[in-house]
Every structure is written in structure tokens, then in C-alpha cells.
Amino acid sequence: MSNMQTSPEAKVEERSSSNNKFFIWLQYFWANYSVIFAFIILFILASIASEHFLTPLNLTNMLRQISVIGILAIGMTFVILIGGIDLSVGSVLALTGTVVMASQVDFGASIFTAILFGLFAGLLVGLVNGLVITYGKIAAFITTLAMMTIARSAALYYADAGAISGLNSDYTIIGNEYLFGLPIPVYVFIIVVVISFILLEKTAFGRHIYAVGGNSRAAHLSAVPITRVTIAAYMICGLTAAIGAVIETSRLNSVSTSSSGSMYELDAIAAVIIGGTRLTGGQGKIIGTVFGILILAILSNIMNLMNISPYIQGAVKGAIILVAVLLQKRS
């Protein structure tokens, strides 16, 4: 239009083209990655607070400890990005862990086959969640709440609420060995992160995930296969639970059907939310979740190093979640 030079939009344009480009970039960066600043500050504070924090042994231990929840949180990011939730991941970890151990112990499967069975079981549970949510039109919260009790109960029933311990010590390599100074679970976590990042940022599927979470009706009318995308998100989440289960069970060569994975879903959701992903979907980044989980890890690590009672640690974690969400609302 001919009056473009004087319209307010045009003024914004002029402004941004000169000195404010940096400011706009900073705003964008803050909106998406403020969690990284929070992490850096926390990291510095932790280094000052305890001399034991910044030691290679402590840091690698910390990374190994968070890798299971971290992997779960990555799967959870997909589900929350489409505007869903998966409360079943902790129980699914126990169930798929049971599948992996039972395949080895009770059915004599090789480690490789047992792991494949476990991963397949995770995908299958995710598929069921996805089908019930899309075709059954039942809210994700209800569906996965039901799946949480069903999966846990199935594992408990199979093992009479006990543990299944493996006999083949080769299986413990995954959870316990190091490669070039880093624990193997950390590599698994990194691989999951990289693949998820590529899926979300570089593929049409990733674009569809954001579209479904942003506005599923508009996505539907833009030829986005919303049913398939939704099911896929829950399957990814189930798969990450199964990957977590492999690491967890390999650590002790055993699965405890009553306690494995218990409450993990809450930590995973917390990491995703601290990482800046919007609970209603459509906005969030994998990198955010990674730093969300790192923040949780440093917090519990430094509290342990400083001998803070484990009974009060939950309160601190809860407060951090609230602060993180409050800060994100500001930006």
C-alpha cells in the first residue's frame, strides 16, 4: 500500500532493521532458551557451594543418574508438545523392564532379543494409549492414568510383586560401563536427544507435532494427519520409557516390579515444564527439556553434597518448578 512509510508496522520494520535486531533476537532467545541462563547460574552457584561439585567423578555420576529420567522426559516432550500428557511412563518402565528381564530369565532369550521385546512392548503400550485417545476420544490424562495402573499391575502380577534378577552379567555392561570416560547411559541419552532434535526441527513430522499442539482443528484443515501424529507421539513416549527400562534394569541386572520407575512420570513432566515447553502444547524445544533435566539433576546433587535432608528436597524441587513457570510467564 502507498501509505506504508507511515504505518506503525512500517515503523517497527525500520526500527528493527537498525539497532534493535539484536534486541529482538535476544527476546526470541530469552523466550525459547531462558532455561539455559538458569542452568548456567545454577551451575556456578553449585560450584561455589561445594568443592565436590565440580569434580569429574561427581559430574559423570550425576549425568548417569539423570539419563533414565532424561530419556523419559524427551519422550514426554513430544506428548506435551501435541497438548497431551503421559502419566503412564513410570509404570511402563516397570512393565517393559519386566518384559526384558523375564525374556532373559524365564524364556531364555538373548540380551539382544530381550531388549527388542522390551522396546516393542513400549511401542505397543504407546500405540494403545494413542488409539484410545484418538479413536476412543478419551482425555489423555484419564487414558494414561488408567494405563499407569494397568501397566504397573501387569508387572506386579507377573512377578508376584517381587523382583526378577538376571543371570547373564554381560547385560550389566549397558548400565555400568564407561566409554571414553563417560557412562554408557549418557551416550544413550545423547543419541535419543539428537534423534529427537532432528525429528522435531528438520522433518515434516516435527512441524506437524507443533501444528497439532498449536491448533489441532487448523492443523486438520491444513491436511496434517492429526490422528497419526498423535499416536506417533505416544508411541515415541512409550519407546523412551522402554529405553529407560533397559538402562535401569541393566544397572542392577534386576527389575523391581513394585518400585522401578515409580514417580518417574512426575520428574519427567517437571523437566519438560522447567525446560519451557507449554503444557497446552505447540511451543517448546528439545534443548529446553535437556536443560530442564540438568537443572533438576544439579539441584538434587548439590543438596545431597551439602547434606540437606532428603525430606526437604522435594519442597525445593517443587518451588523451583513454580519459579520456572512464573519466569516463563513473564517473558
Binding site: 491448533n215 482443528r217 484443515l221
Partner: peptide, 25 residues
């Protein structure tokens, strides 16, 4: 569609990603 905000666009998505959403193939 008649309602840009409800059914036409993903409001939080970028202009660029909205434009190519139906044709990513």
C-alpha cells in the same frame, strides 16, 4: 475457513511454517 484464528492458522507458529504447513511433502 471463515475463522482465521480458530481454524485457519496456527497462531503461535511462525508465518513461514504456517505458509508451508499443507505442502511440506
Amino acid at each position: 475457513t471463515e475463522d482465521r484464528k480458530e481454524t485457519g492458522l496456527i497462531l503461535d507458529m511462525s508465518i513461514a511454517n504456517n505458509i508451508t504447513l499443507p505442502s511440506l511433502k
